[in-house]
């Protein structure tokens, strides 16, 4: 494709990214660096602040669409702290799956692919995209949550009992390295599309059109990185290497969840997440 076509594709994916993902990297950066003019997130650092934070999630003024989306699942009285945190994270994750799905459908050519292949690409790609999306929300001290209204400290997450305390640490470690690449939102949009359009996912029926689509997005990504980040000629190669790390990270995460399901009898896995993780790794 001509570079004008590639730039048009980048613009289209960037617009879709901004339309479907409420907490972009630039917004997260502003919140994390305290540049939101007094509208700083509520910090959850212990059980008491977790209970108070719950109130903030329900009461903070949000645009109508976001307010509808952030309604929490019904409270279960006397629920164990760890299970309660896990349930909240799951609920937000299920919402994020919907956002990623809408973004995925906007990738030119995606909805013309075989329906079976669309399901497989989404099933395998969605957690990788969500993990990447988490990186800009994190710094060394914690992570934003609930559309940037909450900041949950890393120490609090580490203070949860085993095995819950082990779940977020690998994501913080990945985020620290990923954030060094200093991508912007438009780079992220293209990278997400590249992840989704991976032609080597197990069970795909018709690989060729997927690889063709991915090739075009890769060209658009390479062109964009060269244009926006001219001082970092290795950025494209470095970013593609992250895809290997992501697969390993997600595979470990899914194994962790399967183990949790066996060990934690009171833990319920969200049906949508259950569907995605079943027979995944």
């Amino acid at each position: 494709p001509e570079s004008a076509d590639l730039r048009a594709l980048s613009r289209q994916l960037c617009l879709s990214y901004h339309r479907h993902f409420p907490l972009t990297k630039s917004k997260a950066k502003a919140i994390l660096s305290g540049k939101t003019h007094g509208n700083s997130p509520f910090v959850i650092h212990d059980m008491k602040s977790l209970t108070a934070g719950q109130y903030f999630i329900n009461c903070r003024q949000l645009p109508v669409l976001e307010r509808q989306r952030s309604v929490l699942p019904p409270e279960e009285p006397a629920e164990e702290l760890e299970l309660s945190v896990f349930r909240r994270i799951q609920f937000r994750s299920a919402e994020a799956v919907q956002e990623v799905t809408e973004f995925t459908k906007s990738i030119p050519g995606f909805t013309e692919l075989d329906m079976n292949d669309q399901v497989i690409l989404l099933k395998y790609g969605v957690i990788e995209v969500m993990t990447t999306m988490l990186a800009p929300l994190m710094n060394k001290d914690g992570t934003l949550f609930a559309y940037g209204q909450i900041f949950m400290t890393r120490e609090f997450l580490k203070s949860l009992r085993k095995p819950f305390c082990e779940m977020m640490e690998p994501k913080f470690e990945f985020a620290a390295k990923f954030n060094l690449l200093e991508l912007d939102d438009s780079d992220m949009a293209l990278f997400f599309a590249v992840i989704i359009l991976s032609g080597d996912r197990p069970g795909l029926v018709n690989v060729k059109p997927i690889e063709d689509l991915q090739e075009t997005v890769l060209q658009a990504l390479e062109l964009q990185l060269k244009t926006i980040h001219p001082d970092c000629p290795q950025l494209f190669a470095k970013l593609l290497q992250k895809m290997t790390d992501l697969r390993q990270l997600v595979a470990n995460h899914v194994r962790h969840i399967h183990l949790l399901k066996k060990q934690e009898l009171q833990m319920c896995l969200h049906p949508l997440l259950q569907e995605i993780m079943r027979d995944l790794y």
Partner: peptide, 21 residues
């Protein structure tokens, strides 16, 4: 595959209506 991934399938097919979570 469709049977095992009913929600994903629905999310992919319905353009605007939110899935009951």
């Amino acid at each position: 595959l469709k049977e095992k991934h009913k929600i994903l399938h629905r999310l992919l097919q319905n353009s605007t209506s939110p899935v009951e979570l």
